[in-house]
Design a protein around this nucleic acid. Structure first.
Lengths: 213, 213
DNA sequence: ATCAGCCAAATAAACAGTTATATGGTACGC
DNA sequence: GCGTACCATATAACTGTTTATTTGGCTGAT
């Protein structure tokens, strides 16, 4: 994916840095930190490996730089809407469909880096602001208070990405219609989390007695 | 975690194999395939590394064996209930809380192995049966048909594990009450996906505002 | 005395990170 | 305009270590 990577024309540290970051994003998304290979990044970026060390430090720090850049992109491109979580979920879904490698990248981060305080820049603050916005929306009764802001956010993220990775049972490629169907299922699912509950217990006729098997 | 790993007493291939599998589960869950180290597995299992190769083949095949064993465990210990998905989600949640490393293991599998047809044994069939069961429950009106079986399953899994990994914003350790609160949030969320939709648009006013955070 | 179970040591390949050197651009004295 | 000293940018070759995997022999149970 994303092969072209315009060849180095003249000396331009900024452009070289960008090529390295881009190549590293691909490589880390595909193989994670432990599985990534410096020489492949070097080759894909058409830049020398020593530059990686002078510009970024080492492999881990390169990964952090990649995360920072991409988190910034997501925060920038997917605007949050505390009072329209279903819409937010839809946009997140679209973004992930358009950038499938970013979910992988985030997952690698969780598995390999998130343990010892290597949060991407700005993420923590961004999440805090989202939580506060959700709480405000709930206080103003513009959003159902059935779930805590944290629950709502976690569930929205989970649902938006539920269909993303190559699932163990789903085909890797989807037709346009299938994609649209899944998108609206996600949006509807989130809608159901943000809609006020009706009187409990009176769950309408036809109640299923749930046997467990 | 799980250090003891009873020392090798007498010669017992079966027991040695089990120790290796157990140690490999820990190691792979912690570091993935690329990050796992044979010598650490050797040390943790108190068995010689050559045995890994004679029993399992190589690193990748050892990982497959680990996956097979653990998938079998999950399928065995978390019974599926097509007509009680909220309950299933709750049990899944409990299982994941009790075995946090298994979600990591599954995630590593998706990232590192799922690409080229290395499905764990029995998983595909199990999922097929679950889909069929959900479809039957829907046909018999014992389960809302708002979502396809695939959507329902994907969402249930996503919600049950939404809170599992060290989230970017949540503390790694939870009090007993927090855990219980999250569990019931998950169950309630799934309940909302499985409840028939009421007439659209008429979203009843003023329902109980639950305190948040 | 055979054979599965087990092991220490060897091997070869792969890898991250470094070093010593080259090259293009540019500011400035003249 | 012209040379030249200087620095950021770039590179190829190398180093020391780590790693998966193999080999060949030892051990104890039957």
């Amino acid at each position: 994916m994303l092969q072209p990577v315009s060849p180095p024309k003249v000396r331009d540290a900024q452009a070289t840095k960008a090529r390295l970051l881009r190549a590293a994003t691909e490589e880390f998304a595909a193989h994670g930190i432990a599985g990534a290979r410096i020489d492949r990044i070097e080759a894909k970026a058409k830049a020398n490996r020593a530059l990686i060390y002078s510009y970024f430090g080492n492999k881990d720090q390169l990964f952090d730089a990649v995360m920072d850049a991409n988190v910034a992109r997501v925060l920038d491109e997917v605007p949050f809407a505390p009072e329209d979580l279903p819409g937010y979920a839809g946009r997140l879904f679209d973004f992930l469909v358009a950038n499938p490698h970013l979910l992988r990248l985030a997952t690698w981060h969780r598995l390999e880096r998130a343990d010892n305080g290597h949060e991407p820049q700005g993420l923590r603050d961004s999440v805090r602001m989202k939580m506060a916005a959700l709480a405000r929306a709930q206080a103003g009764h513009r959003l159902a208070s059935t779930f805590t802001p944290e629950d709502l956010y976690a569930f929205t993220m989970a649902l938006a990405s539920a269909w993303m990775p190559a699932s163990p049972y789903a085909p890797a490629t989807l037709s346009e219609e299938q994609l649209e169907a899944r998108r609206s299922a996600v949006v509807e699912a989130v809608r159901r989390l943000t809609t006020p509950t009706r009187p409990r217990g009176v769950t309408r006729p036809k109640r299923a007695t749930a046997p467990s098997a």
